[in-house]
Amino acid sequence: MPKLIKDGAITDSSWHTVSSQTVYEDAFATKAEQLLVPFNMWQEHKAELKASDLEIGVWLDSEDDPYELSHEVGNLPLIAVNFPIFRDGRAFSSAAILRQRLGYTGELRAIGDVLCDQAFYMKKCGINSFELPDSGDADDFIRALSDFTDSYQSTVEIPDPLFRRR
């Protein structure tokens, strides 16, 4: 089971992530009751997925447009943003858009190449859960969530920039 950190603590994930290569029919092969499906699958099979007994979350790859979820965010218990490689920074913007623009308040998870050296920035962009790769150290990651004491900018976490607070 992948290591999950949520709201600053190590926890278990009961969600099954469906890979982007999986064909729709195979997505239900596992006995998981919570499925995290790729955005394309969600787009194609939205009606069926919504009608199923399973709990459904959606993960966005870095080129997927979060705005296309604008009418769904109220109903999704989990949205994930994928880092195909840690230096691809698009997921930071996707996360910020989901929170600031679309007002998403549910769990927002980082998946993929999730490196502890980016933990603080991810948190600032509104990501509150982190699925670590096998090589990731959960304690290192939790520590890294507070690498910095503050930020200069207006962030999802603290909308008032430092200059309004100092």
Binding site: D88, G89, A96
Partner: peptide
């Protein structure tokens, strides 16, 4: 300078 320093969204452009 302050706005661009450690900007969480724009460190991996």
């Amino acid at each position: 300078r302050q706005w661009s320093t450690f900007h969480p969204e724009f460190a991996y452009l």
